[in-house]
Design a protein around this nucleic acid. Structure first.
Length: 283
DNA sequence: ATGTCTGTAGTATACAGA
């Protein structure tokens, strides 16, 4: 089974590339973020093309900002919008933004999430980001074995996940507070499967600014993650970034993260086996 | 790296968010 997550930076602007990518990569389950359109417009724009390709979907939009979706060719059951205790902004009691949707697809509990950006560490949005992540960790099930949380975390987990940590200073996405909040998600039993598969490899980036030729110089960040429970880790066949989708004309500023899973076992197949180490470059 | 892309309002261009 192939699972993918992609921040498309406007589904409407990405329409032709998104459909081509579905045909080329043929993912079974797709988590999307930053669709940036209302549900009715999503339906009008995408339903026929997704029906034709055999994708069921759920889209949670709010108009010009945010917006998440899950597309699935392998079932889409028990859809849930947002999570219990999801704070709003600026008042936590305000209605939650369109940042989370979850559903059960072929036995996996799949979450598509778009974590608040945070802007700068002294901005109220930064406080919101941390509170939001803490609430999310509290809303995950006690047993996450078959849970997979996919999306734009807006956090680079380690210094190796940005092109040059010295350039970041105290900017957002790399602060200890954000990394601790991400650690709170992983403490529930979820693991970052791209890092699991490529333990020491630098430049496994998923995002490059549009400006200044950042992509062509590979000045990127790894901020889109797939966090998976033990049952999913056991089935991990491959985990990679589809850089092709960031090339050419009219790309999103994010590339999709792709995860290929072996068939679900019928019974207990034993403990998680560590993945092979990434090849080391000589010198 | 701060060099662009997106949506909105509204009709040309400015603004906000990332």
């Amino acid at each position: 089974m192939r699972l993918a997550t992609w921040n498309v930076n406007s589904a409407k602007a990405r329409l032709p590339r998104l459909l081509d990518w579905l045909d080329t990569r043929a993912p079974d389950v797709v988590c999307l973020q930053e669709t940036k359109l209302p549900d009715a417009e999503w339906d009008a724009t995408f339903k026929p093309d997704l029906d034709r390709r055999g994708y069921a979907y759920v889209h949670v939009g709010e108009g010009r900002w945010n917006g998440v979706a899950i597309l699935s060719q392998v079932g889409l059951d028990d859809v849930a919008v947002g999570f219990t205790g999801q704070p709003g902004f600026p008042d936590p009691a305000q209605p939650a933004e369109a940042r989370v949707v979850s559903a059960t697809c072929a036995g996996l509990r799949v979450w598509s999430i778009y974590v608040p950006n945070g802007r700068t560490p002294d901005d109220p949005h930064f406080v919101y980001k941390l509170a939001w992540l803490k609430a999310l960790a509290g809303a995950l099930p006690a047993d996450v074995a078959d849970t997979v949380v996919c999306g734009d975390m807006n956090i680079a987990p380690a210094d190796v996940d940005v092109w040059d940590i010295r350039k970041f200073g105290s900017s957002t996405h790399v602060t200890p507070q954000e990394r601790a909040a991400l650690g709170g998600l992983e403490a529930t039993g979820l693991a970052d499967v791209v890092r699991l598969r490529w333990p020491d490899t630098p430049h496994v980036f998923t995002y490059w600014d549009y400006r200044a030729g950042a992509f062509h110089q590979d000045l990127g960040m790894r901020i889109d993650l797939v966090l998976a429970g033990s049952g999913v880790q056991r089935r991990l066949a491959a985990a990679w970034v589809d850089r092709q989708a960031r090339k050419g004309s009219g790309p999103s500023d994010h590339a999709p993260v792709m995860v290929d899973l072996d068939e679900a076992p019928d019974g207990d197949i034993g403990p998680v086996v560590p993945p092979p180490s990434a090849p080391r470059r000589p010198g």
